[in-house]
Design a protein around this nucleic acid. Structure first.
Lengths: 125, 125, 125, 125
DNA sequence: GTGGTCTAGACCACC
DNA sequence: GTGGTCTAGACCACG
């Protein structure tokens, strides 16, 4: 379900956060469905439960999931997630556009690249 | 000349590297011109000389500058600098395009945003 | 495990880098095995942890090891390591061959020396 | 007569030492002939006389030249120079041979490379 | 004066 | 516990 990349420079908990976000966005985890428990997911990935705990805390902070004491963690409204990730992406895009301009890349070249990449990319990161 | 953002999660030396790269790319620092000395820049930014030293070392490793003991640090050929930053940017763009697709953003919407951002951005980050 | 030569003109961190490379190449450090921690190796060699840190950073930059915050540093694929060191060696050899020619050393003399040294050398530097 | 490479990482005085050694070895500077004065060579290369001074001192220390107060610096016996450089080269060769063995390069491969490089190299470094 | 290395000691993020 | 960043201050080689 989730594959960790220990050679990735990002912290483990961040990888988990992102993978879970992706699963929600692509519909594999539907609204109000229950996430695996901290302990079981930790066992499955053979990592420290603290790390899962932190990932869940982060997701809750961002409003992507909600936790009920004694019951577990559940997927929040799906729309918000997409919206949040979209906003984040638009921010990155704006930064890139500015930098491209600095580098003397024309608008034509830039949009052409974007279209090209959009068509090519299979999806998985 | 250079503004540090202490709230930024990235290390200071990395911010300096990027800022100096930008100054070289946009032509504010011309080929073979001398950079401020490690100590003077450290003083100006009120940070430790070691941190500047590290930024300069990184820039030298990437081929953006060359340093001569006892003389100073100088900007290298900058054709290659632009090329390097361009490649980096295209990589980021490809990643973003893939993610946008996952999020259900249409190609039209994406390119439209890109054009918009390209026109708006004044330049300074 | 590692012997430092304080009379050597090269910086300590560079000596450590080379020694560790050798240990990886000759198989004493196997793929994905954990390196001693920054602090423990520093203690063992009675030098400052920062110096070890720098050596590890250099090895990571060259792709010889990978480091995970909070976990440790581990040796990477070592096929590429050998290849990299090989290339480096061939470069040095080419330089030497040219110099030998300048000095009037005959090809016979040169190859003879090479064979001799190859047979003699026990290995450890 | 001498070209300095400011982008070379080695110190200037070391470059000068090597260039002068080469000139002696190849016969351009004959035994007992006078070297340019410190001041004139410094002027010619537009560098600090101290740097030339240091190069000459190094050459004298190695026995390649001899200085007479009030008269100037002169080329020493030519045989010694070649011999010294030869010895140095053999040392490097021995080191390389040992390393090659560690890397699993066969003796055949090594000598073949040496012969090849010997034939190819034009000479100038 | 310059860049480069090293030490001692602190703090942070992560697991 | 781990690696990574930063500071303060020292020393060296070089020009």
């Amino acid at each position: 379900m989730i594959l960790l990349d220990y050679k990735d420079r990002r912290p483990i908990y961040e990888q988990i956060v992102e993978k879970l976000q992706d699963l929600m966005v692509c519909g594999a985890l539907t609204e109000d469905s229950q996430l695996p428990s901290v302990r079981s997911l930790a066992m499955e990935l053979s990592i420290n439960p603290n790390t899962i705990q932190r990932a869940y805390a982060e997701l809750e902070r961002q409003g992507f999931i909600y936790s009920i004491k004694g019951k577990g963690s559940f997927v929040a409204e799906n729309g918000m997630i997409k919206e949040a990730k979209r906003l984040h992406l638009y921010n990155d895009l704006e930064r890139l556009a500015g930098e491209a301009r600095l580098l003397g890349i024309t608008k034509q070249e830039l949009t052409h690249r974007v279209e090209q990449y959009y068509d090519i990319t299979g999806g998985v990161r």
